[in-house]
Amino acid sequence: MKWVRVGALLLVVGLLFGAAAWMRPFGRPSLAEMDAYFIQKAQAEAGANNVVTSVVFDYRGFDTLGEATVLFCAVVGVALVLRRVLR
């Protein structure tokens, strides 16, 4: 039973290594048109030097809203689970 587990793990890790080794080369990403648009227009449209911040809070702000919701839910969940100290 243990050897089956180790074999399955080795198989999965081997597949991961193969996929990583035969992927497209490092440093040459495909489909970069959207990011080129962000890099060119972020200073004029969002008015920020930091392009990552303008993507997080402006172009993909809805994503960040969901992220903040997840964080809020996690804090509420921890407070509920540990509610003995809250009393």
């Binding site: 969002a46 008015g47 920020a48 030097n49 911040t53 303008s54 809070f57 402006d58 702000g61 960040t64 903040a68 964080l71 809020f72």
Partner: peptide, 15 residues
């Protein structure tokens, strides 16, 4: 500069 970005940074930072 930045418009709403610094204000949102402060809101998220407090959070």
């Amino acid at each position: 500069t930045g418009g709403t970005l610094p204000l949102m940074n402060w809101a998220v930072g407090l959070k």
